[in-house]
Nucleic acid binder design. Sequence first.
DNA 1: TCCAGAGATGAATCCACCC
DNA 2: GGGGTGGATTCATCTCTGG
Lengths: 402, 402
Amino acid sequence: MSILLGDCKEQLKNIEAGSVDLIYLDPPFFTQKTQKLKTRDNTKAYSFNDSWTSIDDYYTFIRDRLIECHRVLKSTGSIFLHCDKYASHYLRMALDEVFGMENFQSEIVWSYKRWSNSKSGLLNNHQTIYFYSKTKDFKFNRIYTDYSETTNVDQILQERIRDEHNRSKYKFDENGNAVTGKAKKGVPLSDVWEIPFLNPKAKERTGYPTQKPILLLEQIIRIASDEGDIVLDPFCGSGTTVVAAELMNRWSIGIDASQDAVELTKQRLENPVRTSSHLLEKGKEKYINKTAEELAFLRLMDAVPVQRNSGIDGFLKEYYVDKPVPVKIQSANENLDGAMEKLRHASKKRGCLLSILIRTKHDHSLFMDDIKQNNYDNILVIDSYDLQINDWITENRNTRTY
Amino acid sequence: MSILLGDCKEQLKNIEAGSVDLIYLDPPFFTQKTQKLKTRDNTKAYSFNDSWTSIDDYYTFIRDRLIECHRVLKSTGSIFLHCDKYASHYLRMALDEVFGMENFQSEIVWSYKRWSNSKSGLLNNHQTIYFYSKTKDFKFNRIYTDYSETTNVDQILQERIRDEHNRSKYKFDENGNAVTGKAKKGVPLSDVWEIPFLNPKAKERTGYPTQKPILLLEQIIRIASDEGDIVLDPFCGSGTTVVAAELMNRWSIGIDASQDAVELTKQRLENPVRTSSHLLEKGKEKYINKTAEELAFLRLMDAVPVQRNSGIDGFLKEYYVDKPVPVKIQSANENLDGAMEKLRHASKKRGCLLSILIRTKHDHSLFMDDIKQNNYDNILVIDSYDLQINDWITENRNTRTY
DNA sequence: TCCAGAGATGAATCCACCC
DNA sequence: GGGGTGGATTCATCTCTGG
């Protein structure tokens, strides 16, 4: 692989036409600011300038470089252009101009959650990647993902036919049994990619501003290239593309106008660090330790669910006497005493002056009257609706006739 | 509300300048096809033409109508323009031209899962909505969503200070206990909205092509308008915007060039149906809002389509003595007597032997003791969790010292 | 009134440490 | 050791102040 220093417009001229399989491009976004960041140990500050005299100026800059990209791409090759909301429409116009509207393949949404500041308006939680091919015969590896948990897989496996109105319906044999079609591999990859943002604590971080997660680049490289192919990044920055390509046995070319970026990339290649996301591997379901029913309770009380603390299921959104109000829902395998003890402990640690326990069943714990009358440890015990309804039914079933 | 027939370019001229709070616009997408769809019973086929001589022609068409939209909008108003991937960049260019680049607020991604014949390439699972305001002082209602499953909520309740290197860290008191900061409501709404695509079998479905889910419109209307505001949809099609506005107590104006569309909209208004999506019932919702509370109730019950003035919010999943058990939640503008009267009426019609009323506030209606002791008309009245908590606080605030 | 720059902000999630 | 939880760190930030 090679890392080149210089403006990619010039550097690309040295690359042979039709030689590259995949280009990933992460140009400045037209933020009109200088992007800066320091390494964690404060030893080095990286920055690049993203200020322009005008949007036309920016447009020309991008278009000129796209023209060179187009030249070096193989006829089966594709380009992925990363943008954010500021100038995505201009970037796409430039792509239309250079690659042709008919070679537009997808608008990929990279969606993530981020530690962010609250602002008036919607939180920015995505960036866009435009996927264009050079011709209509482009290399594309299908990836299949798991069916979503709400999908009825049995139904998918059934064969379909069309009725007299040309509507599709399921096929049944003469005995009325569903006919199973050929095995499906899963759902083809969507154009919305949920990949975690590079975390503040991730070892993968280099201190270079705007660094992208390797996981994102891996996905692009996987769908648009094979082992041994050539991957090019004309604005390589911290070198994520090059590192990902290396890890996946592709050849790669990185170009950047900054000496710092080039050195960082070379350095990173010597010891590539890839943070695997626990969240992606395990799935977010693994982190959810609440049942849908518990979540419903919390919602009804206007409480925030808490997934990680034992003894507490959530906090009320409103404080009581400047202290948070923890909420606990008695679970099926807990008696009231035990639930109360846990809640009391968690509540004390935080100095809370009111906590709420939702009772979901009767057991032989403390007498309710005791608890209610004494405001026991500032724990307010509330019977769940279900419990109240069942109590009513029990009371009335035998005394009433209809 | 009013539904107008005709080209919106002409119809908008009859609307006073600066009179509209919110515009939602779902113009043809430049698919270069005629969009057709049949109703489920095959009695009617709806269609509209989306073919253009050129992209410039399309651009001009849109821009001319946006100019009128800009004129009728209040200075605090905003516009939401729905596009799909084919022409989104052109639509945004037109918005930049008419509303100004500086009034761009968000690129909203509506993401959904949808079955589709697997073509080569990525599955198309999103559409884009551009959000522009008329001025920088625009109306915006904040919505808060749940914290991520992995978030340590306990920690973020803590207050922070800065150390000598200007890095931020958490604050502890002299005893080493964490100091809690101010109350947190949750995470502000993201610009990526996961809302299920209209289920093909949903009752809500009218048979009109490109119909949008009412949940999507509700979200837009909620963030950008208040009750009593005026909502405009210049390409109203099947009338989803108008129906959503109606359900949410906004005034609305719908315009469409097709006689069929106008009639359908009027018809739909007479009996607005909202399917509470199956996915949402399963608790996968990504956003919190007023209906979240309603959804939480629905979890405990069997959902019924929300129909106005029916007096019932749902039924319990279990029957009582072979009869369904209707449930009603006292709403903010109802007193207990009124709520009870509606519930009793609805309940009697169905011969129910038990109905449940959730009381959400105190008022000067019947005495609770009366109701509880007499099992008044077999209506079981339960105080909402919120109400019980507030009662506790009221009782204890003055009698306790800390 | 507008722009630049300082200062406040806030939650996601990996890591380290603790039993 | 491995499972769980407390802590640290960050900004293709966001808001507000002052000149």
